[in-house]
Design a protein around this nucleic acid. Structure first.
Lengths: 234, 234
DNA sequence: TTGTTTATGATAGTATTGCTATTATGTGTA
DNA sequence: TACACATAATAGCAATACTATCATAAACAA
């Protein structure tokens, strides 16, 4: 494992590859800090430009608009997660163990592998929780999808879905289950912090009522033979 | 059942109660049509005012801003759903049957009870799918929550959570499961339409791979004794 | 009836956002 | 040396998100 991970992203996510220049890397790095601080709605290219003592026009040379920048950041995160999952499961043979590992990484137990130097991954993870849904919940979703801007998320989802099928080849909703786990992971992290009456998940709790516990329960309940027959009878 | 349902909403959702005046009702009715058509990002009070041949200032007298209007519409929807669920379950004694009915209504099998005359409920349902998450995924969530703006959603969630506990009193995540069902219902309706590789759920399919089938499987798998023990062992 | 409140409309104005265009400047490359 | 090229500096424009003021008409109260 090298110190910094090379993450290749769809070229349609940017106008000029931000990884290739100092300014580009600064834009990415500081936009993460600023979006995390202000929230996506209050974040503007003008504020970013002032923050990095550059100009609005320069930022626009890298990203078409702030929505594309968000898509870039979120894609980067899914790639990074993919990398971490591969890193932690490539030696695991048991499919159930693989899924368990996936969930463990998904809920954000960071620290056991080399962190990306240039990017504040914890801030990016917070952005993903609060903003990632907005990347696709738009009227432009079909256009963006045709341009392949969600490919990384879909790839990752498919990869885990294959593990699910390995556990239970008869399970009829592998992709649906995995995307639900992704969405639920983010939502319950958010609920635990801001709307705790919507979830039993507690972040400070290392024992019971962990997000990991809930997601494991949700996933493996669905994948036992008994459970499958429950669904089929409805 | 009367022809039109009176739905009482938190007064902090509006500046002047739109139900009390002709203009107010027009604002609500036509904002639903416009948000559905344009999407929340492209929707503005100016466009709405032009659409209803009124003025921006008049709209602002009813709603503080478009975010509060969205909160109003979404709250209205949860209230309406609550009403429908009560209507269809008040005579049901079996808890599992109640949960099944809840899921059936959640996925949107409309038409069996009186429709609200003034509001295009189908358009509102589409808005909820695309925009409801944006109502709380903001930096203002704690302020809005303290003002009670999410109370209707939380109440509904709690109500169903009690049914879940009736089915399996030992289940440790009743609210988490129910909020997951709510979120998943919206997300998979959306995925089925726009990102079908993220779900097996198909809308046109009346037999297999229905949203109802997936949610029932997800819910009832988690609530069988066998399934509970699966989760506890992790 | 008269007077008064109240809702709406009409109009104006301001700061910010989102974006484009033009020109200048410095830096590295052929 | 000449050229390309990235960035900075500046300007500008249309749209957005409001706020304020004043006129008018309907509703209602004395």
């Amino acid at each position: 494992m090298s110190a910094t991970i090379r993450i290749e992203l769809n070229e349609k996510l940017f106008l000029r590859d931000p990884e290739q220049t100092e300014l580009g890397r600064t834009i990415v790095k500081e936009s993460i800090r600023l979006i995390d601080e202000l929230g996506f709605e209050h974040f503007t290219f003008k504020k970013l430009a002032q923050h990095i003592t550059s100009t609005e026009a320069s930022v626009y040379r890298y990203f078409e608009n702030k929505h594309k920048l968000l898509l870039y950041l979120v894609s980067w995160y899914w790639n990074w997660l993919d990398y971490r999952i591969s890193y932690h499961t490539h030696h695991v043979t048991d499919a159930s163990e693989k899924l368990r590992t996936f969930i463990r990484i998904l809920v954000g137990s960071h620290g056991s592998e080399p962190l990306e130097a240039n990017v504040d991954v914890l801030a990016l993870a917070r952005i993903v929780v609060l903003e990632a849904s907005k990347a696709y919940l738009t009227k432009e979703v079909d256009t963006d999808n045709k341009a392949g801007l969600f490919q990384d998320y879909k790839n990752l989802c498919h990869k885990i879905a294959l593990v699910v099928l390995e556990i239970d080849p008869a399970y009829p909703f592998p992709h649906a289950l995995v995307s639900t786990l992704f969405e639920a992971a983010r939502k319950h992290l958010f609920f635990a912090q801001h709307l705790p009456s919507l979830t039993e998940v507690r972040l400070e709790n290392a024992g019971a009522n962990t997000l990991k516990g809930f997601l494991n329960h949700l996933a493996f309940s669905s994948l036992t033979k008994e459970a499958s027959s429950v669904g089929a009878s409805l």
